[in-house]
Design a protein around this nucleic acid. Sequence first.
DNA 1: GAAGCGTGGTG
DNA 2: TCACCAAGCTT
Length: 292
Amino acid sequence: MNATAIPPAISAWFEQNARDLPWRREGFSAWGTLVSEFMLQQTPVTRVIPRLTEWLERWPTPADLAAVPPGEAVRAWASLGYPRRALWLHAAAVQITERHGGIVPEDVDELLALTGIGDYTARAVAAFAYGHRHPVVDTNTRRVIARAVTGQGEPGPPSRRDLDAMAALLPDEPVAAAVFNAAIMELGAIVCTSRSPRCDVCPVREACAWRAAGYPEYAGPKKAVQKKFEGSDRQVRGLIMAELRATHHPVTAAEIEGLWADAVQRDRALAGLVADGLAVPVEPGLYALSQG
DNA sequence: GAAGCGTGGTG
DNA sequence: TCACCAAGCTT
């Protein structure tokens, strides 16, 4: 097996091994695809599925979401994490309703112009919802290419050049391209994983440059270490947001004081949430999710 | 380009 | 146990 055999081998494996996921069901809407991609940004599949199902039952179209206050989106986001995504998804729904007649656009540049949509999500929607031929590059794709094609244990830092590397592997035919985009992500998600890759069941083991090189240790620039969550501003923000989501009335400054002892850090976290639009001071000393 | 942004599962 | 990891985006 040589390098040119990698894409068809991965796609063939995918046809047999793809997980049964909601966004792969026949007739799943473009809006559903967009919502799922927002939720999947840094949140695992198993945690996304229940929230996605509820979300689409409640807001089956962009206009349905655009019609409610942003704070409702933040509440429905629940504990998926990074709640700014809920705000951005709501903003995107408003923009889709106003600019695109309520139809999720299929043009990558129009998608990129929506709040909260970047290189990955724009191309994922164009490819998976509309069948257009674009390279879709996420962290799984970058890892598989780094190993199987480049022969390194880990991808380097994300770069626009990743799109070119993926484009070079992409089948010409749009449907085959969309399948391969999904297939290489899936391989990275369940076989060519970050921590303990299951090379014994990998469909491109015989062509893998990393394996051929004897699994050399990654020597490139190190990933920035994720800061400890315990005691971080993120933790304080999370506590305040959980309180705002839990109550259906404004939260008092006194209640927020009870969530975290360090006043300096607490005030910094709250000010950050206000700056982000996640918390709104409805009057001095009273905070709520965005109602407008 | 680097930093900041949640939450929960896992090896 | 705890560091690492998870379909990224914005500033």
